[in-house]
Each structure stands twice: as C-alpha cells, then as structure tokens.
C-alpha cells in the first residue's frame, strides 16, 4: 500500500469518528430540544407544578437552582480566587504549593455523590443546618472550588511577569501590584471560570440530593434554612417518581431543555469572555 492511500484511509477514519461524535451530540440535543420545546411556554417557566406534576410549570425549581448557584458561588468564588492568588503570587514554587495543587486536583476528581454524603454529614447533621439552601450551597461550593481555583490560577499565571516587574519597579507594594495590575489583567479569564462554575453548579444532582433538594414544595423558600426544589433533582423526580410517569414525561423533557440551555448559555458566555483576551 503506498503512502498516499494509507494517508487517505487514516484521514477517512478520523473524519468518520469526528463526524460520528458530532452526530451523537446533536442527536441528544435535538431529541431533548424537540421534545422539550413542545411544553415550554411562559406558564411552564412561571408556574408551580400542578396535578401531581403532570401539568403546570417548574418555576420553584428554577428559583431554587438560582438560589443554589448564587449561594454556592458567594462562598466558593472569593475563597477560590484568594487561594489562587496565594499559590501563584505568594507561595512560589515550594512544596506547600505542590501539595495544594495535588489536593485540588484530587478534590476535582472525587465523585459528586461523595460530596453529597460529606455535605449531609457535616452541614446537615453535624452543624445542624438541616436540609437547607445553606447546606446545599456549601456542598455545591466545595464541589466547584477546585474548578474555580484552577481557572483562576491559570488566569493569574497568564499575566505577563513584566507587568509585575514594571509595577514593583515604580515602588508599588506587592499587594498594590496584585490589586491594581494583576487582578484587572486576569479579570476576563477569572470570570470565565466563574461562568463555567455556574453551569457546573446548576447541573449537579448528587450533591443536593441529601442536603437541600425537595420533592415538591407548595411555596418558594423564604430563607437560607429552607429546603428548595432544583432543576436537576426535579428532572429526576419527574422521570422516576411522579404519580403518573407517562403523563409527566413531557414535563421532564421541558425541564431537561431548560437545564441544557442554562449550561450551554453559560459555556457560550464563558468562551466569549475567553476569546476577548
């Protein structure tokens, strides 16, 4: 077989699998989109579930997910950015930093259900927060912390060393240099990490399962110690434990579509931010 032919065959195989993957991806999105779009309406987005979740909407789940996103990031974002500042700007390249890196990488690969269990043991039981938005937010916060730390570290490391030198050479302190030069320069990429985290937090089911998620609530949560409904868990409920599974199936597709859209839109915004830099 001559070179050209084997080249062409290899190319064909790569192309085939590439197209296959894209095809699979699109058929998933298409399937959900097609089935979901039929139930999505203004009422679906703004009303409570009705008639044993076979009609009505998913409003409380949207609100709950919103609370959980805000709650977890209020906690995880500053913590993640600060620890990234510590490891990149202060700690140098010593063993402490290496250990922190290994820990965050390991933290990132722990299955999310384990976070759920841990959150239940610590926040729900030990600290006595009960099943609550607070406990769920903290658990989700722990889950995305490694993602925020890693994206922030990358953002800070991408800031040219010459900016720091230029600032210090003018008599600026290290803190002034970080606040006025390094952070503004890294801002876009740090925000990218934040937006990716929003997508991640809104889609996770396992961490909220034992810490906050409610099967059904007749009214919206009124404080951080209340339980909440949330989109991914609501989807699970609709698909597995409604009163009439057949009848609530369309509602499940609608919920799935809303969830996918939130995640996709967040990722799109994130890549837009990243491109600008």
């Amino acid at each position: 077989m001559n070179k050209k032919v084997s080249q062409n065959i290899a190319f064909f195989i790569f192309k085939f699998f590439g197209v296959l993957v894209i095809g699979i991806l699109f058929s998933i999105i298409g399937f959900i989109g097609y089935n979901g779009i039929q139930v999505i309406s203004w009422e679906f987005l703004t009303e409570f579930p009705k008639e044993g979740m076979t009609s009505g909407g998913i409003f409380p789940a949207i609100v709950g997910t919103f609370y959980l996103v805000v709650g977890s990031l209020i906690f995880a974002f500053p913590l993640g950015v600060m620890s990234a500042i510590y490891t990149t700007e202060y700690a140098g390249k010593g063993w402490i930093v290496r250990i922190i890196r290994i820990m965050t990488n390991n933290l990132a690969s722990i299955p999310s259900i384990v976070f759920g269990l841990f959150g239940m043991a610590l926040f729900v039981n030990k600290l006595n927060f009960g099943d609550s938005i607070l406990a769920g937010s903290l658990t989700l916060g722990l889950l995305v912390l490694p993602l925020i730390i890693r994206t922030s570290e990358e953002a800070l490391l991408a800031v040219p060393q010459s900016y720091r030198e230029g600032s210090l050479a003018l008599g600026a302190t290290k803190l002034q240099t970080i606040r006025r030069i390094v952070l503004p320069a890294a801002f876009g990429n740090i925000i990218t990490g934040l937006i990716l985290s929003i997508g991640r937090v809104s889609g996770e089911t396992a961490p909220i399962l034992f810490t906050v998620a409610a099967y059904f609530l007749p009214k919206l949560p009124s404080g951080i110690f209340d339980q909440a409904m949330a989109l991914p868990y609501h989807l699970y409920v609709l698909a597995t434990s409604g009163t009439d599974l057949e009848a609530s199936r369309p509602m499940a597709y609608g919920t799935a579509l809303v969830l996918i859209l939130i995640v996709l839109i967040m990722n799109l915004i994130a890549s837009f931010f990243r491109k600008k830099l």
Partner: peptide, 18 residues
C-alpha cells in the same frame, strides 16, 4: 518600595500596563 521609587527602571522590552 521607597528604594524602588527613588531608583527607577526601564526594561529591555517595553512593558506598559494594560
């Protein structure tokens, strides 16, 4: 910091801040 304020520096590659 005071020393560096009194002893300025210009680098090989221009490095204005963004």
């Amino acid at each position: 910091d005071n020393l560096r304020k009194d002893v300025g520096m210009v680098f090989q590659k221009p490095n204005p801040f963004p």
